[in-house]
Write a protein that binds this DNA or RNA. Structure first.
Lengths: 204, 204, 204, 204
DNA sequence: GATGAATGAGCATTCATTCAT
DNA sequence: AATGAATGAATGCTCATTCAT
């Protein structure tokens, strides 16, 4: 009803990204219609195309921005740490904190990979591999020093990442456990899993 | 003019479920069209309605059948075991084996919950909670006995389930690691995570 | 309002072709909307797709059917005739008669060539070349015998075809001139143009 | 932010007409979008409206300018000639030369008549009728003097015009035949068609 | 004179579903 | 149990046009 008039440029763009992120998170890319999106933003469907090229492009931008921000933030978080165990703890703390504050981005970055066209898929997947490699290198460093001992580095990395990322699916802000609790919990589980049980090894 | 070849009779139903499972797994429920499904089955779209009531019904049947089969199989797998650690190992072995052989069912059972209508959603989620409770009870039993010591039972259960279920997303049959290797690996990681690091506790 | 129900197969198909032909003739391919077409046929827009694959396909089918029918009919019309002048007269009579009874088909076959996708374009253009070649061969036969003398066979053929086809743009059934009058007129003009002016040649 | 480069000032108008002519010629009025046009001109779609009132107006201006220029040029070309045969030859030479140098204008002036709104249509069609009347009056003058003898003046005029105008559809600059060749060819064909075959008439 | 963001209508096409046969 | 033709709503996207800046 209330007709907005005149240039509204960058605000509209941000609103589209924000609303698009939420809709894809809640309903999925295929199930989100651009009419819904436009209506949440408060413009007509056709007007979306002053800001995005296609629906696919919106998804790709969302994922790419997220992955690049994530990688950059990870690098900053790991920088000060030198020993494998410190790095592992820093990784867990960073991952959990980042993932519970950006649940939507993280979630769609896993769930909507299949909605990407092949060329876009390759780009996002290679960014994700770079992220996974950081964890693998930490584990490898630990294995080398003996501070950390994991059975199979890639498989363990995938297992730990799945565990840590899973927090997104059940964490709700304001719930029983605070972010700090979660970081403590996941750090404990990860560090345990990454170290051999001394008794077992002593006995062997 | 007359009867076109294609699947017929009771086989059609099975073919619809099998093709539907694959399509939802690969493309997602919203992105799968009943025309695609019919064409994979070898019938006309209208003919689907001799076998299913609606698209939603097909999804629900797939998930419900999966969850009930899963729960039943879990009960059988846990039955012979009595101590918490044995039960935990049995749970991991069962979960990993089952999940890597039914990757599609397992995957859509997580990813397509949001595509369920509210009534159907409640039914599936409560089945899933029953499954999760089994793990929580094992952990609780372990904590009670001291054989296993986890910081927060529900949170640990979710973390472990996420880790174990994650195997579906990267396991490919015929890959570097055999199912037995995976069971061994995940058992090791789970048991480590579920037991305190003696050094820590000795020192405290 | 009045809902037509049940199978109406081949009739609908014919109605789509007939209405499509008329709409493309009157408004042009680009300016014809499938909504218009559906409404002329008396069905919903989506129902068109039970009969045609795409809008482009409809255009192509119309043109291809026309060109193949035209070529076939020309062959029949020319068959009984043997001398170049007889063949030329038969060609003119056939062309004029056919073109004033199928004005729409003929018109769109010229005007909508540019609306065809490349692959379809090639097919239609090669059919049209086959038609033009028939006239060129008649002229060549005449030149050889001396019964007919034209300056440049391809250019003359194009000129005559343009002249003869032009009848479509101004002929209206029931007008001042009957089809027979037109055939007589165009035959006279064509035969005159195809024969040298004796005076000119005597003098040279 | 500030002023974008691109065409500016009075040149923009010319660029719009030139690009519009080419686009309508190649794709047709309905199939040409103002976005395409703007992009060829190097401005934004909205900026077009500083120069044209509507898309329809652009088409009308193009056709009106063409027709008025054409009529004026014809008058100049015919002025020096007095006998019907001289006038007929002058008409053919003018028409062919003009049409092969302004193929686009000529083509759209026939093909896009139907895209004109009724009021605009009437104006253009009446200009075209004035052009056709010039040829009819030449033929009538010839018939009166006996120098030229055609069966039915309007029909013959339409036939000849169609033949002469057809040159646009197949002439390509730099092809096998030069403009002079074409003028000679079309003059020959026209003069032949406009004169009776003496032999026929002697025998009758 | 140009921009960029907006509108509202319209586009070709696809969808889940129905139903007479 | 299957078909094929239909529906009506929805899809992503494009259109000519407007207008504050």
């Amino acid at each position: 009803m209330s007709r907005t008039i005149g240039s509204n440029g960058p605000k509209t763009m941000e609103a589209i990204y924000a609303a698009g992120l939420g809709l894809i998170y809640r309903h999925g890319y295929a199930a989100m219609s651009l009419r819904q999106l436009a209506s949440e933003v408060g413009i007509q469907p056709g007007s979306l195309y002053n800001h995005i090229r296609t629906k696919q492009d919106l998804l790709f931008s969302l994922l790419q921005t997220h992955m690049e921000t994530l990688l950059h933030a990870l690098n900053e978080a790991l920088e000060p740490h030198t020993t494998p165990e410190e790095q592992l703890r820093a990784f867990v703390a960073f991952h959990v904190n980042y993932h519970i504050t950006r649940r939507a981005e993280v979630f769609i970055c896993y769930s909507e990979l299949r909605s990407l066209e092949p060329a876009n898929y390759e780009i996002i997947v290679s960014l994700r591999r770079a992220y996974e490699r950081r964890l693998m290198m930490i584990l490898a460093g630990g294995n080398a020093e003996g501070a950390v001992t994991v059975p199979d580095i890639p498989a363990t990395a995938y297992a730990l990442l799945a565990m840590l990322t899973g927090v997104c699916t059940w964490y709700k802000p304001g719930g029983r456990l605070s972010p700090e609790d979660l970081v403590a919990l996941y750090t404990e589980l990860t560090v345990r899993a990454a170290k051999p049980l001394p008794s077992l090894h002593t006995q062997t």
